[in-house]
Write a protein that binds this DNA or RNA. Structure first.
Lengths: 208, 208
DNA sequence: CATAACTCGAACACCGACGTACAGTTTATG
DNA sequence: CATAAACTGTACGTCGGTGTTCGAGTTATG
């Protein structure tokens, strides 16, 4: 082989989040290309989850063969992209303060989640087509559990309406986020206006 | 040729909505099969917009070749399915009373639209991948225009909040419908509960 | 009941995307 | 600057989906 496969599935699993130490030192340009590819893949797949390897390689400014030098298969690449997205999602949401007034706490969660939804978009679709569904579940269960906690605390305090299932309210939470992302993509609203609209609308929908 | 192509693209265009008179009399079982195919295609594509011809034929209890005897190509079939869906959508929404209290009028629109969204689901996706985007636009512009009228009337009357763009409120309208359909599909809520939840939540989100 | 219409499965060519192999060139690094 | 690592395009085999053809069997209809 002419190029060194950067990562088998097993190696990836152990590599963890970012640029952990590899077996042997990798050349600087190789590292840079891997980053370009992952970044491009994230960008492209977030818009079109069915994008071909060719499109992704072109978007990364890299030959198709080069991409295969770093990722065994399309599935491997998607897994890497999704793993990073999940990592960043967990990191971003971990630093959201869930205490205090439930309405304000939910507003903070909406703000943080909006940016993630907007950035990653349809990436969850690309993941679902390749990765085992159980893996996707886990990625969404974390954030949803946090939102559920805030929601239930607010319902107990009489600030959120309790005449509908919490599951449904979580669906609404997701639906409005997703709808806002689509609206921005369609050019109906600007990305700057989105956070406030999402916040006001969702709070209105869920408040008692 | 062993089978008579039931419909070229041109013939379809002139055939209009349902079972208009064909050139020559078609046999009864052929007609029945065409219906089975369209029904199955609607059912399958509403769930998986990327379903193959094979899956659709199997779902219709018909051989793949038989399907091609009635529809020139996948695109032709999708067009027929989408055309029928649009026709039924227009028919269902046409008989919704838009007058009277804006909130109640919007509730009636939500009720009617919910059934359509639930039945047709991802069919719009299948259409977008095959038909010219302009054709899909037209299908959604009608219903959306009606909703916009009710919305604007309600805003003027002070019943709907006017501190956010109407376009955004229409996006919310769509998003909650779509989210409810997804929630039902995931089994989080039942199809029976959905209409009331959609109505209550959307009205809460948009009311002043 | 005889004929024409319809259905069916198998087989074929076509196409696009995936993944691999090879050979030549560029470039990072010691 | 010499060497090995990395990048590149071309070409190839594979796979799944599409659309067509054929020949034989079935069924509606006059």
């Amino acid at each position: 082989m002419t190029t060194t496969p950067a990562s088998t599935a097993a190696a990836k699993r152990s590599a963890g989040a970012a640029d952990g130490g590899r077996d042997r030192a990798k050349r600087a340009d190789a590292l840079r290309n891997v980053e370009s590819i992952v970044a491009a893949a994230t960008r492209v797949l977030a818009t079109d989850p069915d994008a071909s390897i060719n499109e992704i390689a072109r978007a990364a400014g890299v030959g198709r063969v080069t991409l295969y030098g770093h990722f065994d298969s399309r599935a491997t690449l998607v897994r890497e992209v999704v793993d990073r997205a999940i990592a960043q999602t967990d990191a971003s949401l971990a630093e959201v303060d869930l205490d205090g007034d439930p309405r304000e706490a939910l507003a903070r969660m909406l703000e943080a989640t909006w940016h993630l939804t907007h950035r990653f978009g349809a990436l969850v679709v690309a993941g679902s087509q390749v990765l085992p569904p159980e893996e996707m579940r886990r990625a969404h269960d974390g954030p949803m559990a946090r939102a559920r906690d805030v929601l239930e605390r607010g319902r107990a305090a009489g600030e959120f309406r309790a005449d509908m299932p919490v599951e449904w309210q979580l669906s609404v939470f997701q639906a409005i986020l997703h709808g806002a992302s689509a609206a921005v993509h369609r050019g109906e609203i600007t990305a700057d206006d989105a956070p406030a609209l999402v916040r006001d609308t969702t709070l209105a929908a869920l408040s008692a």
